[in-house]
């Protein structure tokens, strides 16, 4: 494998010229590329963040995959399949970006199926109703977009580039979710109730996707200094709530937070406290579906072993026959 193009050589961390060059790049709002020297902590933070992000896309296929066979129409089934396919694609873009930092894909897969790596807690909630496909699109993908748009300007080049591609595709995800809820809200009383009940369940967890309040988010500051993160958790959460309230009005749906009120002085909507104990519980593995999600991912990985093996031996045989380069 060519070290110049992907797997960057990991150079010594005690490199003052490298550090100077790195600081310069950040100060100039320039991008860091895989072959540049970077501090070990920067590399480690990015590997953690990008691989978690990739895992979230891969695990994120499950709550929606749950509804593909039961989507209410052929159109909705096709849309849902396209969305789940996008998520697989997003996972691959992100695994590729993480690999440029020197971690191999098998290691990341192992970290996911052994529980050593995390993914977004939101996917540990179950999707018992069709309206949940709407709520996931509108609220979960909406929060993800809010989080991800600033990541397009992340200082690490491969991550930023992956995010540009992902954000472009993600906007359809949010719109189709909104549309599902809109159709339910224009439907029968039972359909409206189903939409409202679903939003009641997803609203708070979606707000918690931005992470704990800034004062409880010790890594945020360093990530901001490294131009990985551009905005604090609370600022992004506020931005999201400000977008949601008028959208909820269009839907005719009630956001399950009586504290929501326009604050003239701040120029923002006030909203209530979130239940961070619940957040920590889910993070600690005690959510509705943590065990199921990881077990299913593990089974899919293990069941696919023979496919990978077959492709590999086919490629080896062809390489022998044709002299084509195989690895």
């Amino acid at each position: 494998m060519n070290p110049v193009t992907e797997q960057a050589e990991i150079r010594s961390d005690n490199d003052t010229a490298g550090q100077r060059r790195f600081d310069e790049l950040l100060a100039n709002e320039d991008r860091v590329e895989p072959t540049d020297w970077m501090p070990a902590g920067y590399r480690k933070t990015l590997i953690r963040q990008i691989s978690q992000h990739a895992h979230s896309e891969i695990i994120g296929m499950q709550p929606e995959g749950n509804w593909i066979t039961r989507a209410p129409s052929l159109k909705r089934k096709a849309i849902l399949m396209a969305k789940v396919q996008d998520e697989a694609g997003h996972g691959l873009y992100l695994y590729s970006a993480a690999q440029t930092l020197g971690i191999d894909r098998e290691t990341m897969f192992e970290q996911l199926i052994t529980g050593a790596a995390r993914y977004s807690s939101i996917f540990n909630y179950t999707t018992p109703t069709w309206a949940d496909m709407g709520s996931i699109g509108w609220l979960v993908d909406g929060a993800a977009i809010c989080n991800q748009v600033p990541l397009c300007r992340c200082s690490y080049g491969p991550y930023g580039r992956a995010m540009v591609r992902i954000c472009k595709e993600e906007s359809f995800h949010q719109r189709q979710g909104f549309e599902i809820l809109l159709e339910l809200m224009n439907g029968t009383g039972a359909q409206r109730a189903m939409a409202q009940e679903s939003v009641n369940r997803w609203y708070a967890p979606a707000l918690m996707m931005f992470g704990p309040p800034d004062e409880d988010s010790p890594n945020s500051q360093q990530s901001m200094a490294w131009n990985i993160k551009r905005f604090g958790n609370d600022e992004l959460r506020q931005r999201f709530v400000d977008m949601l309230v008028p959208q909820a009005e269009i839907l005719g749906i009630t956001l399950p937070d009586p504290a929501i009120a326009w604050n003239e002085d701040r120029g923002h909507y006030d909203f209530g406290e979130l239940d961070w104990d619940e957040f920590r519980e889910v993070l600690a593995g005690r959510g509705q579906a943590n065990a199921v999600r990881v077990a299913r991912r593990r089974r899919a990985h293990e069941d696919g072993a023979w496919v990978r093996e077959a492709a590999r031996s086919y490629a080896d045989r062809r390489a022998n026959e044709t002299g084509e380069l195989a690895s």
Partner: peptide, 18 residues
């Protein structure tokens, strides 16, 4: 069937630029 961490099955597929 393989188990995670089994380095004997580690993927070594080539990297392609698209």
């Amino acid at each position: 069937m393989t188990s995670p961490g089994d380095s004997g099955t580690r993927e070594t597929w080539a990297l392609w630029e698209v």
